[in-house]
Simulated assay, not measured.
Amino acid sequence: MPDDLFDQDAWLGRIGYSGSRAPTLTTLRGLVDAHSSAISYESIDVLLDRAPKLDLASLQRKMIGSRRGGYCFEQNMLFRGGLRSLGFDVTSLQARVVRGLAIDAPRPMFHMVLLVNLPEGTYLADVGFGNLAPTAPLHLVADVEQDTPHEVMRFIRMGDELTLQSRLGNRWEHIYRVVLLPRVDAEYEICNWFTASHPDSPYRSNLIAARPGLNRTRITLFNARLNVRHATGEAERRMLGDKSEYRDVLTETFGIVLSDEELSTALNTVAQKGVHGAPHPFFA
């Protein structure tokens, strides 16, 4: 498939969306919810020393044809392709992740997000932030609480940037700071290469997967630690044991099917280099 072609029907079938295709806010809400629920966040290719490819043809082969998931650049590049095929006006942005950090932490712009221009205003769409990706488009305005199928979220100002926060239980937690400057795809290629190649990248040493669950839950796998977090902030935790248990969770919970060799290689790398205590704060 040529890089600039997008199979709209295949994407909508993959995410189970059968609603209106008109480029409206209602459609955008349905698409964000459907895509987030159907395609898991995961970075297993990086763990297997395979840098993800970001051209549309490769993304469609992996996440639609092979029914795999992906991390932020893959997820939001694919989602952007789908939105544009439907006639949405989309601007590509970046964000600085401050999950588990101070709001003004000096962070690089290593996360991809999308700005969607609609008659109602500008909205953030992000289907690629693991266990806290907004499951609804968010109006890009400060100091307004916005409900989603999962958490209540809001933006607050931090200089020229807007910090996305999520209400977890009775506290607000920072997620990332949105930089309101349009980006070009070459900048994502640079970030993707760094994230997938740097020896200290958490993705190269840890098995990570996440998806939103039913009843406002969030399900996260970080190495052996499987978490189901409820909207109250309470969490159910389970430690995985043998290879068959990992396979069952990846397949049944996250819809990720790996070959026996891929799973063995991933688990061997985690055993040698992975974090064996609490998860990285970005994935807590």
Score class of each variant (00 low, 15 high):
141 V>G: 06
142 A>N: 14
145 E>H: 11
146 Q>N: 11
147 D>C: 15
151 E>R: 09
151 E>W: 07
153 M>R: 11
156 I>L: 10
157 R>V: 07
158 M>K: 12
166 S>H: 13
168 L>S: 14
168 L>C: 14
168 L>A: 09
171 R>N: 15
171 R>C: 11
172 W>A: 05
174 H>F: 09
178 V>P: 01
178 V>I: 11
179 V>D: 14
179 V>I: 11
179 V>H: 11
180 L>R: 05
183 R>H: 02
184 V>G: 08
184 V>D: 07
184 V>L: 14
188 Y>Q: 15
192 N>D: 03
192 N>F: 00
196 A>V: 05
198 H>P: 08
198 H>D: 15
199 P>T: 01
201 S>G: 02
201 S>W: 00
202 P>A: 05
203 Y>N: 09
206 N>W: 04
206 N>M: 02
207 L>R: 01
207 L>C: 01
211 R>N: 09
212 P>F: 00
213 G>I: 01
213 G>W: 00
215 N>K: 09
215 N>V: 04
218 R>P: 03
221 L>I: 01
221 L>S: 05
222 F>L: 03
224 A>S: 14
225 R>K: 10
225 R>L: 15
227 N>S: 13
229 R>D: 11
229 R>G: 04
230 H>P: 06
230 H>V: 06
233 G>K: 10
234 E>F: 07
